[in-house]
Every structure is written in structure tokens, then in C-alpha cells.
């Protein structure tokens, strides 16, 4: 599904140059569940954002579904992003002024989908993540676990083939964390590719493969025995 070849990302400030990613080579196939681990500042989030096309590499190639997207414009990337990739963030990133249903619908708003179909799909996905009874509530009225479920619903409502999760359980207690992980597991079982950054070895265990980063390098890759 995607392949990173000699990919580097350098952050430039006034007088400091930070190498966030250094010659990273990773290949992820359709339907995989990959966890990315490593200490703080090792480049996990940069890697995830680059995969999610929210950040562009400084050098190297990024092949997505057979196309090298590393030279694509912002607008071209936006098209691929909205069709193929769903995002889940540690801090949920729901819009405070919109209701649960409206937050989920947001992911469909920028696709050409008629309003009636949008409503239909939103209500289906809310049932799926068990948040339907909270449809009219504002994010601030929900618990953290419920908010993250809304975020998951938003990530998959557009039938995205890949979900990128940046520490999805980082702000949740263990019970809610487990719920979210089980939800991701279920999505993976249905064929969705999942790439997840996490600090928790227990949650990394849900993945079929774990990539360890250190100072921008891939240090180890381990595949879970089936």
C-alpha cells in the first residue's frame, strides 16, 4: 500500500537544524496493523504525519498506491488524504462548536455526497461505535473515551482504507483505552490498514508488526507471530 524510500525530514529554525527523520525505509501492505514506538522526540509523530500527508518530506520518495506523492502539491495531497486516510489524535481534535453528529459529518462534508446519504452514513457509523445516543451532544459533554469514539467514527465514516492513529489512548484511562484498541482491532479485521503511534507496549501488542524508532532511524522491526 505504501513505501517510504530513503525518506528524511529536516526542521529548520533560525540557527538549529533538527533531523526528525533520517533515511527511513518502511513498507506497509494493505490490511496491516502497524505500531510505531520509541522514546519522546524520536520522530514518531513526524513519521505518522508524513505518511498522512500532513507533512512533506525534505528528501526521499513516498510511494502511495503506486504513485510517488513526495512532489505532489498541497491540493493534490488533500484529494488523496480525504479519499484514503482517516486520522485519530491523542487529544481527539473535535470541534467544540459542533455536535457529535456534525463532527462526524465533517469528514463527509468535503466530499461530494448528498446530505441524505451523509445522514445515513453518520448514523450507521455512530451505531457501530456505540455513540448514537449522544448524537446531539457537544464534545465538552462527553467523557474522553466517548470523545475518542467520535473521533474513530469520524476517521472511518468516509470508508477510508487506512487509519493513522497518533497515541489514540494517550489521554484515556486503561478501561477506555482498551475499548478504543478493540475498536481498532475490529476495523483491522474488516480490512482497514492501521498505523498507530503508541507508548504503551500493551497496546502495541494489538499490532501485527512494531517499528521502533530512535533519533529518526528505524532501529528494529518485529513481527508478531501469528
Amino acid at each position: 500500500m505504501l513505501k517510504l524510500h530513503n525518506l528524511s525530514r529536516v526542521y529548520q529554525t533560525d540557527d538549529v537544524e533538527t533531523m526528525a527523520l533520517n533515511n527511513v525505509n518502511i513498507e506497509i501492505a494493505q490490511g496491516e496493523f502497524v505500531a510505531i514506538m520509541g522514546p519522546s522526540g524520536c520522530g514518531k509523530s513526524t513519521l505518522l504525519n508524513t505518511i498522512g500527508m500532513l507533512d512533506t518530506p525534505s528528501s526521499g520518495e513516498y510511494w502511495f498506491n503506486g504513485e510517488d506523492v513526495s512532489g505532489y502539491s498541497e491540493a493534490q495531497l488533500a484529494v488523496i488524504r480525504k479519499q484514503s486516510i482517516g486520522f485519530i489524535f491523542q487529544n481527539f481534535n473535535l470541534i467544540d462548536e459542533l455536535t457529535v453528529a456534525e463532527n462526524i459529518e465533517l469528514a463527509l462534508l468535503y466530499h461530494d455526497i448528498p446530505a441524505s446519504e451523509r445522514k445515513q452514513r453518520v448514523s450507521t457509523v455512530m451505531d457501530k461505535v456505540g455513540i448514537a445516543h449522544r448524537a446531539k451532544h457537544m464534545p465538552s459533554q462527553l467523557s474522553g473515551g466517548q470523545q475518542q469514539r467520535v473521533a474513530v467514527a469520524r476517521a472511518v465514516v468516509g470508508d477510508q482504507k487506512m487509519i493513522l492513529a497518533d497515541e489514540p489512548t494517550g489521554n484515556l484511562d486503561s478501561g477506555h483505552g482498551q475499548e478504543v484498541m478493540e475498536m481498532l482491532q475490529a476495523l483491522n479485521d474488516e480490512g482497514t490498514t492501521i498505523v498507530m503511534v503508541t507508548h504503551s507496549p500493551a497496546h502495541a501488542d494489538y499490532a501485527k508488526r512494531t517499528i521502533n524508532l530512535f533519533d529518526g532511524h528505524v532501529v528494529t522491526e518485529s513481527v508478531k507471530a501469528a
Binding site: L54, A75, V79, N93, I95, D96, L106, Y110
Partner: peptide
């Protein structure tokens, strides 16, 4: 800004 970021991640264009 945060809201705009989310909308962009969801696929909103500059025009939107």
C-alpha cells in the same frame, strides 16, 4: 486555528 486544522485534515480546501 484548531478547527481550521481539523477541517483541513478532513479534506477541506483553502477555498472551503
Amino acid at each position: 486555528t484548531k478547527e481550521i486544522g481539523i477541517r483541513k485534515v478532513m479534506g477541506a480546501s483553502v477555498k472551503d
